[in-house]
Amino acid sequence: MSETPKPTNPEVPTPDTNKYEGLRNPALHPTDVEIRNSPDVLAMHQQIIREMSEPKDGVAPTPVWLLMFFFALIGWGGYYIAQHGGGFRADVYNENPAVLYRQAGGTADAAKPVDLMAVGKRTFNNCTQCHQVNGAGIPGAFPPLDGAERVSGPPHVLAAILLHGLHGPIQVKGQTFNGDMPAWGQLSDEEIAGVITYVRASWSNKAPEVSPALVKAMRTQTAAQAGPWTGAALDALAKEPPPAIESEAAPVTEAKTN
């Protein structure tokens, strides 16, 4: 213990090291010499008020309300882990306790009426990278949907494009585009019908809506299709009548492809 009790009054300055000039190298610190030779007590004091003593600990007790708060917090922590801990299993990702203890087996979703425009607008998020939010495409690279002839044309052609993609040169609004459109067969019938409905009714397009049943029928009819369509094959398809829509799987007519 090298500390001694000291007045805590900050008005009374702690003496500093200036008494020990011998420790210093006067060449490095010319001020020290000056101070030593100076009779000016004020100058001396200025150096002394430099620093307080080393910090010490006080002993105020921990407030009880704080401890109560902490115990409450720890209680909440335990409850939260028990409720949302997912049983500490590596294959449980949903923290909702209801999911963990739910019986296996799906919940039968009641068939609800679907707003195809709303579904379509969301699904169109997949398309905006090329066709853009305003449907104008990128001139010279990706064709527009706004005002395009095929978009307002026979809907089964659109379903066919979405299901299998498109490859090679096509004519849109008098311009030639030579590129690839990926297939979107992984989307559901409802989503494909939605997105077709959306593009047919957005911007300056005013074509009627398309039912998921048509997409379903088209999916069945073109099941044998291996690759993407070409522009010529689409023109041929457009001249054919749309597939018959039935609730059961329609008898498969041989798809005419390239």
């Binding site: 900050p10 010490k56 600990d57 006080g58 007790p61 921990t62």
Partner: peptide, 9 residues
Amino acid sequence: TGRPVHSYH
């Protein structure tokens, strides 16, 4: 400030 820290605990 020259004051001790409020509480060791």
